[in-house]
Simulated scan of single mutants.
Amino acid sequence: MTNPALTVGCFRYDTTRALFDGSVREDGIDVTMETAATLPEIFDRLIRGNEFDVAELGLTFYLRLLETGLPYVALPIFPNRAFRHSCVFVNVHSGITEPGDLAGKTIGEFGTYGQDSGVWAKGILMDEYGFKPERSRWVIGGLERPAAPFDFVPHPHPAEVDVSVAPEGRALGAMLDSGEIDALFSANVPECVLAGSPNVRRLFPDFEPLERDYHRRTGIFPIMHTIVIRRDLLRDRPRLAHGVHRIFSRAKDAAADRYRQNRRLYQVQTMVPWMNALIERNGEEFAEDWWPYGIAANRAALDAILRYHHEQGLTTRRWRIEDVFAAELLDT
């Protein structure tokens, strides 16, 4: 008797392409891949509708819901990760030229106070520059279109942190451009920046050297999202955790192999000039597996995000790695 196909909800990345096109398979595991136009849609369908057997979920949403009995458990699979010095944008007329200038300013954040990118940005600024979130005012809303805060997760924040909702009919990108807010912590680059607005710039315009230095010193490649699986599935099929980990790992490795193989042709499959040079420069700083899954290779990043989450008042306890991930994969 064959096992039923797993319904998997996640975004289409390099790391998951081979799952969507079926070029990577695992004996005993059939998957039906689903995605959505935006990541919050996937999260909403998972949290509110339990629509997926396996799905991508932002770490902050997962950690907030752990205390409420979420019927899913995380696997140490990380399809979405990004350095975050680059995600802080400021209005050029705000007087913000360095991190210390954020004190007393009004800062926007998409969807919730403490989105994954915001947790990392705040945490890095706190560790590296003495930033204190309670010294700023925070406005939550949609990035390019007016939107209410996410209604599928709780919105905890410390009592001393001033958090409000964006005015009706206003979006954070436009508010940053006009100076209604002074800064914005955003996983996505605002349209005003892409359009070349003279009113907005990054807090760290030359962010790449800072992010590379941060990686060299800490060993951390920030993790945004994890993969979760239904707890009842693991009870019924205890070997499934390892199978899902293998199939996601093989899909990610297939993507990495494409980059390595494309170097032979000077990356002519991409329109990005000097892609080969970037791959070679990264190879000098990163291990052979520069996008690792599992616990051991990601312990520093996981310890950091769990510490940041608690320090920023988003959970009442400081979760341990052993509390967060499926026991079957703690030795990965």
Rank of each mutant, 00 (worst) to 15 (best):
D206C: 02
E51W: 06
K122Q: 10
R250K: 09
P99Y: 08
R217H: 11
P156R: 14
E34W: 02
V31A: 07
R135L: 15
D213I: 08
R64S: 00
V268T: 14
E288S: 15
V139A: 01
R170K: 12
G123T: 10
A55C: 02
D257S: 07
I77G: 07
S117F: 09
I227D: 00
S86H: 14
F52A: 02
G100I: 04
L65Q: 08
A304D: 06
L63I: 05
P99I: 12
P99R: 09
D127M: 13
N298Y: 03
C10Y: 09
A327M: 08
F204W: 04
H157L: 11
K132A: 11
P238N: 01
A297Q: 11
L65T: 02
T315F: 00
A159G: 15
N276Q: 13
A187N: 10
N80W: 08
V73F: 03
D232V: 08
L19P: 01
V24P: 00
E168N: 05
A304P: 06
G100N: 07
E56V: 02
R318Q: 09
W290R: 14
N91M: 10
P154L: 06
L66P: 07
V272C: 13
Y113T: 07
R212M: 15
R25K: 13
R48W: 04
G173L: 03
M224W: 13
L329S: 05
V88Y: 00
P133I: 05
H310W: 07
E98V: 12
H215R: 14
Y113I: 10
E180K: 11
N262C: 12
T97Y: 12
L306V: 14
V119P: 06
S117I: 13
R246I: 05
E322L: 07
V92A: 07
Y13E: 11
D331W: 07
A256G: 13
I227L: 01
E128H: 10
I220S: 05
Q267L: 09
E180S: 13
P154Y: 07
G173E: 01
I77S: 00
S117N: 13
E144R: 04
A304S: 11
W138M: 01
S186K: 10
L75F: 04
G9Y: 01
V119Q: 06
P238K: 01
E98N: 15
F185I: 09
A277T: 10
P71I: 13
R264N: 07
G196E: 05
R318W: 06
A251E: 01
N188L: 12
P292K: 02
L306D: 15
P158F: 03
T16S: 03
P71H: 13
L143C: 11
A148S: 12
G9A: 00
E134W: 06
S186E: 11
P222C: 01
R137G: 09
I181M: 14
L70F: 15
A195E: 11
L172R: 05
A256Y: 15
V54S: 00
I279G: 11
F43P: 09
R235E: 15
S197D: 00
V139W: 03
A159H: 14
L19Y: 03
H93L: 08
F248M: 01
P238G: 03
P99T: 05
G219L: 04
R25M: 02
F207Y: 14
E208S: 06
M126R: 10
I247K: 04
P167R: 06
L172G: 05
P158I: 02
V272E: 14
N298I: 07
K105D: 08
V244Y: 02
R212Y: 11
N262Q: 15
R45I: 05
Y266K: 14
